[in-house]
């Protein structure tokens, strides 16, 4: 079964796949340049306390994103 959710809602250490990126075009092209593209595998490494940013690993790189921005990215998880 495949579940679709926002990157911000993903649990830590669960492997997921990027589906779609919405938001302003500057944001989308930045995500593309950083390797966050449809079909790229992604997982959350840790969350900062009190709703702070999340640290993700994508294409061998570690990035930090704010929750608000991570909400723009949809991912799927194979259950």
């Amino acid at each position: 079964m495949v579940r679709t959710l926002r990157l911000s809602e993903l649990q830590a250490a669960v492997k997921a796949e990027v589906q779609e990126i919405s938001g302003p075009s500057a944001f989308r092209s930045r995500m593309l340049a950083l390797g966050i593209t449809p079909r790229s595998p992604v997982q959350i490494l840790r969350r900062m306390p009190m709703g702070g940013p999340i640290e993700i690993e994508v294409r061998g790189t570690r990035l930090a994103l704010r929750i608000k921005d991570a909400e723009q990215i949809t991912v799927t998880v194979r259950a």
Binding site: G23, R30, L34, P53, L63, L65, D69
Partner: peptide
């Protein structure tokens, strides 16, 4: 609307 994107 610029996001924080931080490479670690």
């Amino acid at each position: 609307p610029a996001p924080l994107v931080l490479e670690l």
